[in-house]
Design a protein around this nucleic acid. Structure first.
Lengths: 214, 214, 214, 214
DNA sequence: AATGAATGAGCCTTCATTCAT
DNA sequence: GATGAATGAAGGCTCATTCAT
C-alpha cells in the first residue's frame, strides 16, 4: 500500500522510465537506444535517468530484472512433478513457450531477451545462471524419466537443446520465419497448436533416440 | 619492378578492410562497431572506407555478401535428388549445418547472420529471398516425399521450422548453449554427431506427425 | 544565491552564440564558417549549438532573423505618408540607408545580407517576402505619386531598382568601393551626405523619365 | 595554329578542367565547390588538377584570369573618345553592361565576379587594380566633360558610384531582383532598354548635381 | 601526360553525462 | 524529487592532396 491515493493513475517517474525504457530498448537495442528517446517517451526530464538509475546501463539492468520477474510471474514456478513423463514434457514445453509468447506479456520482453542471447551486454550474466539453469535441470529430469538416462551426457544434452531450440526459434527468429512463411505473419498458429506440435515431434524424437542407443 | 615477392602475403586494402570489418561487425554489431575500429584493425586509413565502399553501410553490405558467397561455396549447391527421402533429409541437414559450422568458415559468419535474424539492418532483405527461400522449398519437397504432403500448409511449415530451428540453435545461440552446457564449450560435438542426432530426432518427429494426422 | 551581480555583463550562452555566429558567418560565409570557430569565439562548448539551435543551419537562420529584426528596430516602420512626394522619397532613402548603415548596427549585418543576395542559402526565402516586399510596395507608391504612374510596369520597376541599386551598392560592395576610391575608406561620407546625394540624383532621374515618356 | 589537327574537337585536359571549373565555381562558390565535382564534370582524373594547376586555389585563379580576359575581349577596350559627353556616357554604360550581360558570355562570369566582390578570395586582389581602375578613370573623365569637374572629389566619386551601382545591381543581385519583380525573371528587359534607362536616369542625375552645386 | 589508390586533417553532429538550481 | 542548461568525447563522413605507377 503506497502513500499516495493517486498512485494507480499517476505513475511515478521511476516507473514511467522503466516502462518507456523497456519499449525503446526492445525496439532499438541497448546501444542504439538513446536516453533522450526514453525520457521523451516517458515524458520526464533527461536528467531523471541519472537521478533514479545512475546511468543508462543501470537502467537497462533494471529493465531486464523487471522483465524476468514478470516472465516468472506469468509462467509460474518451473516445477513439473505430476503426471506421466510425457505429460510432464508437454507441461514443460507449454510453460516455456507460454512464458515467452504470453499475450499479456509485453512483446518487448522476448525481443530483449533475444538480444541478450546473441549479443550479451553482460548485464544478464548472472541472470542466465539464476533463471535459465533451473529450467535446464528440470528438463533433464523429465528426459531421464522418459528413459533417456542411459544415453550419456552429450546425447542427453543434445536432446534438451533440440527441444529448447524448437521453442526459442519461434521467439527469436520471428523476422526470419515471417520472411520464409508469410502466412505465419497474417495468421500465426495458436500457442496451443505450437505446444502440441513441438511436444509430439520431440517425444517421438526422444523415444527414437532411446531406442537407437539402447 | 617492385618487391612484389611479398605481394601474395600483403593483402590489398579493400580485402583487409573486408576481413577486419567482418570481425568487428560480428563482435559489436553494425551500430556499435565504429569505422575507426575497423580501419585500425585493418591497418589502413579511415578514409579508405569511403574510397572503397562509399560508407559504413555499404561496407557492411559487402561483408554480408562475401559472407554469404563464402558459405555457398563451402556448402555447394542446395539440391538433394538422390537416395531415399530419409537419406535426402539427412543430406539436407548435413549440408545446412556444415555450411554454417564449417571449420574453414570464419566463426563470425554465423554471428553476423544471427544478428541479421534478430535485428535486421535491411541490408539483408534481398539476401533472404535469394539465398534462404530455395532452401525452404527444397526442404518442403523432401518432407512431402516423406509422406507429409497431406498434412496441410500449417503443419508442413511447422515441421520445417522444427528442423531448421534445431540447426540454427547451434549456430545462433552459442552463448546460451555454452552457459547451459559448459562441456560443449570445451568439447563441442562433431558436426557428424550433430547431423546424425538432428536427423534421427527429426525423422522420428516427422513420421510421428504423419501417423497422428493420417 | 549566486554572484549574480555580474549577470548583466555575462551574456547567456545562447546570446553569445548568436553574436559570435553573426561575426563568423559574415567573415567566412555560411559554408566556410565552422561551428568550432563559432563556439570558440563565443567561449562555449561545441555541443551548445545543438542544444540551443539544433544545428548549424538553424543557428544561421536565427542569426539572419535577429539581424533583420535589429534592422527593423533601428529603422522603425516602413511608412512614409507625410509631406510632398519628393520629401517622402527622401525619407524612404534615408530610412533605407540608415537602417543598413546605422553605426550601432554591427557591420556584419550588411555583409551577411550581401551574401544572401549573391548566394542565397534558402534560409532567407521567407524573409525577403516578409521584410523586403513591403519596402518595394512603399517605394512604388511614392514613385506613382511623383507622377511615374503612367510609365508602365517595366519602367516603374526599373526606376525602383535604380534607386535601391544605388543604396545597396554602398552596403554590399564596400570592398569594391574601397579599392576604387581609397579615400572612402579613410573618410567615408556621412549618411546624410549619401542620402542627400542619392535623393537629388534619383529625383532628377525619375522626373526625366516621366518627361521622356509623357 | 596548334600542332594537332584534332585540337578543335578534342579538348586538352587542362582546357576541359578550366571550363568545368568555371561552371562549378560559379554554381557553388570557391569553397563549396569540390575538386571531385570539377574533375568529374571535366571527365578527367582527380589528380589532374594537381598535375596541371598545383592545387584548387591555383585552378581558381586560372579560371578568374581566363574569365577576365574573355570579358575584355567581348567588351573591347575601355576607351570612349568620340561624340558628345552624353553620348560617351551612354557608350560607357553600354560597354559596361554589355560586357557583363553579354549573351555569348558564359553566365558564370558574372556570378564569379559577384562572389569576388562580396567575399574576395584574394585571388583577385591584383585583378581589380588592373582591370577595374581604368574604367573608373574613364568614367571620371566623362563626368568631368559633362561639367562635374568643379564638384569636388567626394561628389564626383559619388556620381560615379551611383552610375556603376545601378549597373552592377542588375548583374550581382539577380536573386533579389527576381524575388521582388517576378516578371523580370520571365521577361527580362533587353540590354538596350537597360542601357537607355540607366543613361537617361543618370544623365539627369548628374546634371542636377552640377546645377545644385554650381 | 595521366591515373587509381591511399592518406590525414577536419567538419558537423550526437551522445551520455553532470552541474546548478 | 526534479529540472533546464551546459559539457566533453566520440562518431561517420568529406575533402584536398599525394604517392607509385
Amino acid at each position: 500500500m503506497s502513500i499516495s491515493a493517486e498512485s494507480p493513475t499517476v505513475k511515478i517517474t521511476s516507473t514511467r522510465l522503466l516502462d518507456a525504457a523497456g519499449e525503446v530498448f526492445a525496439e532499438h537495442g541497448f546501444h542504439r537506444a538513446t536516453v533522450r528517446q526514453i525520457t521523451e517517451r516517458a515524458g520526464v526530464n533527461i536528467a531523471a535517468i541519472n537521478y533514479h538509475f545512475r546511468d543508462k546501463a543501470e537502467l537497462y539492468a533494471a529493465v531486464l530484472r523487471q522483465c524476468n520477474c514478470a516472465a516468472a510471474e506469468l509462467g509460474g514456478p518451473c516445477r513439473f512433478d505430476e503426471g506421466t513423463p510425457s505429460q510432464r514434457l508437454r507441461a514443460f514445453i507449454d510453460w516455456f513457450l507460454r512464458r515467452l509468447l504470453h499475450p499479456k506479456r509485453p512483446k518487448w520482453h522476448g525481443v530483449l531477451m533475444a538480444r541478450e542471447m546473441t549479443e550479451p551486454t553482460g548485464a544478464l550474466t548472472g541472470l542466465i545462471e539464476e533463471a535459465t539453469r533451473p529450467q535446464a535441470v528440470e528438463l533433464r529430469k523429465i528426459l531421464k524419466d522418459l528413459g533417456a538416462g542411459g544415453l550419456g551426457e552429450e546425447r542427453l544434452t543434445m536432446l534438451g537443446l533440440s527441444i529448447v531450440g524448437q521453442c526459442l526459434f519461434y521467439v527469436h527468429h520471428r523476422p526470419l520465419i515471417e520472411a520464409l512463411a508469410p502466412r505465419f505473419k497474417d495468421k500465426p498458429p495458436s500457442i496451443d497448436t505450437l505446444v502440441e506440435h513441438i511436444h509430439a515431434f520431440s517425444l517421438a524424437g526422444v523415444r527414437q533416440s532411446i531406442r537407437a542407443h539402447a
